[in-house]
Write a protein that binds this DNA or RNA. Sequence first.
DNA 1: TATTGTTATACTCTATAACTATA
DNA 2: TATAGTTATAGAGTATAACAATA
Lengths: 143, 143
Amino acid sequence: MSDTTDLPANPLTEYPGYALRRAANAMMGDLAARLGEIDMRISEASVMLLIGERTDKTSADIGKTLDIQRANMVPLLARLEMAGLIDRVPIDRKSQAIVLTPTGKKRLITVRRITQSFEDELLARIPIEHRAHFLPALQALSK
Amino acid sequence: MSDTTDLPANPLTEYPGYALRRAANAMMGDLAARLGEIDMRISEASVMLLIGERTDKTSADIGKTLDIQRANMVPLLARLEMAGLIDRVPIDRKSQAIVLTPTGKKRLITVRRITQSFEDELLARIPIEHRAHFLPALQALSK
DNA sequence: TATTGTTATACTCTATAACTATA
DNA sequence: TATAGTTATAGAGTATAACAATA
């Protein structure tokens, strides 16, 4: 007997593309649960982390950087604004810079703590001999 | 000048978790487009590939193997049945085995061709020195 | 003319709760 | 009691088309 749960074997896990999809689903489920405890979504956290590092970014800028459509930025930023985490500072009569409020800056500290733990634990799950190869391999697939 | 398009730099791409999400999105977008040409979704293709290798599987079995909820298998199998690709063979009055129809077997050949090209091209994009490490690293994250 | 922000809409994948019938 | 199949529903991410106002 090799297993107690007797889960059916999945031959598709030998395919890198399928394994990529599966690993991403598992990891993003984990991260979503962690961020859910502070009522934050993954996409929202990524926006918080980005505007925490680089200021004077418009909604369109953020979207281009994170690969989020302009149209999808609208409800995302609306929710962050509703939660009092971001504010909009007019640049001209067409554009507005998205900035963190004082509350947003405090929340960002928590977001950084959660995501850093997540990233550390993710890396720790990868066998040491494969670890250094992981990020470069992924980066090669995103462009 | 380092770039012509002048895309804003994304500091988050240094995080393995974020890079995983991004790579999976990019790759699954690509695969979805390829499968879309034969009006097939990624989840449907994964079911086709699985029942092409192992027969006498019920809907619940397939779901357990592929990590798809029982409830979500219903519309998925309904669409494959509607397309004439699968058939249901009663096991008892409660369970049914999901099997490929002759049309389904022909379609599976196309699905295999598409997914194999996709997998080959995915691997080819990863620099040779990282390539062999990719699958083991991903597999370590899925359990 | 191109871009910003927006509205509306739709699709895919995923998730949970609850029901019926059968093992 | 547990499992199979199902219905209904919801959330999250992503995608496109189109519009008004402004650069």
